[in-house]
Amino acid sequence: MVHILRCKDLGFNDDFIVIDNDPKKAKERMKEHVLTEHKEEFESLSDFHQEEIISKMDFLLTRGCGCGVLKL
């Protein structure tokens, strides 16, 4: 199963996409991207909104509707 995370789905305005077979690796790569490329914007958010973004990564990696998880 291929797992896909798009930065735009998390509310950031860029075209970065993570594609990986391992959902944990996909999440770590996206977190690394957010904390590198969107550090100021992310850190300016409240703790609640930061947690919301992290939780959204988990949601996107587990839904089976085809927009986050693809079965190949």
Rank of each mutant, 00 (worst) to 15 (best):
G64C: 06
K8A: 11
K8C: 11
M1K: 11
H33Q: 04
V69I: 12
R6D: 02
L70P: 15
S55H: 14
E32C: 13
G11K: 01
D9I: 06
Q50G: 14
E32I: 09
I4S: 12
K39P: 05
R63S: 04
N21E: 09
L60P: 04
D20N: 01
L72Y: 05
R6A: 03
C65A: 10
T62H: 08
S55F: 13
E28C: 08
F59H: 10
M30R: 02
H38M: 03
V18S: 04
T36K: 06
D15I: 05
I53G: 00
S55G: 13
C67A: 07
E28G: 09
M30H: 06
L72F: 15
K27R: 03
L45S: 10
M1V: 10
D22N: 04
I54A: 04
D58V: 04
E43W: 07
I54F: 07
K8S: 12
M57G: 05
R6P: 06
K27N: 03
M30Y: 01
E52F: 14
S46W: 01
P23W: 01
C67W: 15
I54N: 03
F42I: 03
A26F: 00
K31I: 03
C65D: 12
M1T: 12
A26Q: 03
H38S: 03
E40A: 09
Q50V: 03
G11S: 02
N13E: 15
T62Y: 07
H49N: 12
G68Y: 02
V69G: 12
D58I: 10
R29P: 05
I17K: 01
E32Q: 06
L45K: 14
K39L: 05
F42E: 00
H38L: 01
I54V: 08
G66F: 00
L5S: 01
K24R: 06
I54R: 01
I19Y: 13
R63E: 09
L5H: 01
S55R: 12
D20E: 00
E40M: 04
K31H: 07
K27P: 09
R29S: 04
L60Q: 03
E51R: 13
R6L: 04
K8Q: 11
G64N: 15
K25M: 15
F48K: 13
G64M: 09
H3S: 02
V2E: 14
K24H: 08
H3I: 02
E51G: 11
L45A: 13
R6Q: 05
K71M: 10
A26M: 00
L35D: 07
D14C: 08
E43M: 11
E52K: 15
F48Q: 15
M30P: 02
E37T: 12
G66R: 10
G68D: 05
I17V: 14
E32F: 00
R29D: 11
M1I: 11
I19V: 09
C67N: 13
H49Q: 15
L10V: 07
S44Q: 13
D58F: 02
E43Y: 10
